[in-house]
Structure formats: structure tokens, C-alpha cells
């Protein structure tokens, strides 16, 4: 009997780095979504490690068009399926932060504004990792990347990351949620909810990158837990504009617990940069207050 064997829609043998957060996230998403799906992915890490010709890791229909047009291509697929009378197949976009925050942002905004019945999931590893760690609109304050290096006059990224969750909320979506790979049941529940509603839905998923964040391969899940436990990335859920769930923190950890494990933040622990850690703590505190995480 093999009753407890679980189906993998992301086949083994793909080329993700050992311990890849994206691969974990996509396995969980696909398992929650089931068989009746079409997935569209922009260019990025996920595309690269899953899709060599003749060696695809996808067990569901998957389309990679270009870097900046996955939401529009998904719109066309969704419209075509409905034109053919197929109202059962779900269309999901799984795209990185570069595609979502930056180059494909206009297409995403258009897709959700038009009301296509598509679940968009941003896998956010907070920089352009596929091209070798360059900053994106999702790179957090203080992080070093190869385009925001530590230098005589530079201490990493100077701006806080774009608040895409709020931007998506401002599009009046029926479902907006945040998730990380450290909470698989929570992610699965949110994917199912996002698919169940009629119309566009957005899930923001944190997927740490070992190389880009400067952590060990075995720490991927742990980091995606610490980012929640410090209050830097609250797990929340909005349905029809209302905040319907928040992952509470009894005692939020200080942000240092999260930052100190990552080489990209190593310079923050130099004495002269103590203020930057205080700034990041302020961001976490604001989140804790905004969502009443401690209450």
C-alpha cells in the first residue's frame, strides 16, 4: 500500500541549487493546486532550473514566455480557456521579484485591474538571483548585492523594499495574502483560497536564496521562519479588502536574530552601522503595530 505517497508536480532532477527556497515553494504551491492548472512563469531562476529542453521538471502545463509579460500571457490563456468553455482549469503565474516588482509590474497591474481569474504568486528572494545577485525593487534596506555592494561610500541598499502587498491591495483584489515556505500548511491553505475565488488573487511568498543571502543550504526554511518571527514579514490575509487572518507573534525576536545569519547584512554589525539595524528594527516594530502581531 502506498496510500500516504504524495504526488510531486515538480519532478526531481531539476537544476536548482541545493536547498533552494524557490523549489520548496513551487512544490508546495503545485501540490496545493492539483492537476487542473496551467502555470505561467517569467524568465528567472525558476524558469532556468526547471526547463531545459528535453529535461523539464514540470508535470503540469507550463509556459515561459518572456521576462516581463507572464501576467499578460496568462491573461490570454485564461481568456482562451474560458472561450473554449473550460472554467475548471486554474491559471497560476509564479514569478520572481524582479519580474513582479520591476520589469513585469505594468503587466501584473493590468492583469489584476482587468479582473482575470488568475492566481499570481510572487516568489520573492529579494534580488535578481538568476543573473548573479543584483538589487531589485524587492531588495530590503541595508542588503548588499552585486549592484549595491559595501564600499567606502556605500552600505548596501539605501531604500526600503517596495510594499507590493499594499500596492496589490490598492487594486481591490478579492484575495491578497503573504506567506513563506516555513509554513507549508498556511501556504497551501492560501493557495487553495486564492484559486477558489473568482477573479485575480495575489500571494507574496518569501523564498530565501542561499547564494544571494549568504546562508547555508540547510538554513533556507529557517530564515523564512525568522523573517516572520522578527516581524519583518508578517503573514497576513485580506479577503474582499478585509484583514481576515494574521499570524500572531507572542514575543517577536529582535531583527538581529534574522540579520546576523546572512552575509548580505554582515556589514550592519560593524559599529558605525548600528543605526541601520535600529532602522530595520523600526520597520519590524511598525509591522507589529500595524497588524497587532503581539496582541
Amino acid at each position: 500500500m502506498q496510500t500516504d505517497l504524495k504526488k510531486n508536480y515538480l519532478a526531481p532532477g531539476h537544476n536548482a541549487c541545493p536547498g533552494c527556497g524557490v523549489a520548496i515553494g513551487v512544490r508546495l504551491i503545485l501540490r496545493a493546486a492539483g492537476e487542473k492548472v496551467v502555470v505561467v512563469s517569467p524568465t528567472g531562476c525558476l524558469e532556468t532550473f526547471t526547463s531545459p529542453y528535453g529535461a523539464s521538471a514540470w508535470e503540469v502545463p507550463w509556459v515561459h514566455p518572456l521576462f516581463e509579460n507572464a501576467p499578460a500571457v496568462a491573461s490570454g490563456i485564461e481568456a482562451a480557456l474560458k472561450y473554449k468553455g473550460d472554467y475548471e482549469t486554474h491559471v497560476i503565474v509564479i514569478g520572481g521579484d524582479g519580474a513582479t516588482f520591476d520589469i513585469g509590474f505594468g503587466a501584473l497591474s493590468g492583469m489584476v485591474e482587468r479582473g482575470h481569474d488568475i492566481l499570481y504568486i510572487c516568489y520573492d528572494n529579494e534580488a535578481y538571483m538568476n543573473t548573479g545577485i543584483q538589487r531589485s525593487g524587492a531588495t530590503p534596506y541595508g542588503a548588499t548585492t552585486n549592484t549595491t555592494p559595501r564600499g567606502k561610500f556605500s552600505r548596501g541598499e539605501t531604500r526600503p523594499k517596495k510594499d507590493l502587498l499594499e500596492i496589490m491591495r490598492a487594486h481591490n483584489l478579492r484575495y491578497v495574502a503573504s506567506a513563506t515556505i516555513a509554513y507549508p500548511q498556511d501556504l497551501a491553505r492560501k493557495v487553495k483560497k486564492g484559486l477558489a475565488i473568482d477573479g485575480p488573487a495575489y500571494i507574496h511568498l518569501i523564498t530565501p536564496c542561499n547564494l544571494g543571502w549568504g546562508i547555508n543550504p540547510e538554513e533556507t526554511v529557517e530564515l523564512s521562519r525568522l523573517i516572520v518571527k522578527t516581524g519583518l514579514f508578517p503573514l497576513v490575509e485580506y479577503e474582499d479588502g478585509e484583514l481576515t487572518s494574521v499570524h500572531k507573534l507572542k514575543n517577536a525576536l529582535p531583527v538581529e536574530e534574522y540579520l546576523k545569519k546572512q552575509k548580505r547584512f554582515a556589514h550592519l554589525f560593524e559599529e558605525e552601522n548600528a543605526q541601520m539595524i535600529a532602522e530595520i528594527q523600526k520597520m519590524a516594530d511598525q509591522n507589529i503595530k500595524k497588524y497587532n502581531l503581539a496582541g
Binding site: A11, P12, G13, H14, N15, G54, S56, W58, E59, V60
Partner: peptide
Amino acid sequence: MKLNLGGVTEAGRSKQNRT
């Protein structure tokens, strides 16, 4: 093996890769 039109490729063939 002849190439497929448009680079369309079969599902799940990564299973042949010994990672």
C-alpha cells in the same frame, strides 16, 4: 530525436537527471 516545433517539450523528463 527530431526537435519539437517551437521548443515545446515533454513533462517531467528531469527525472532522468542524477542530481
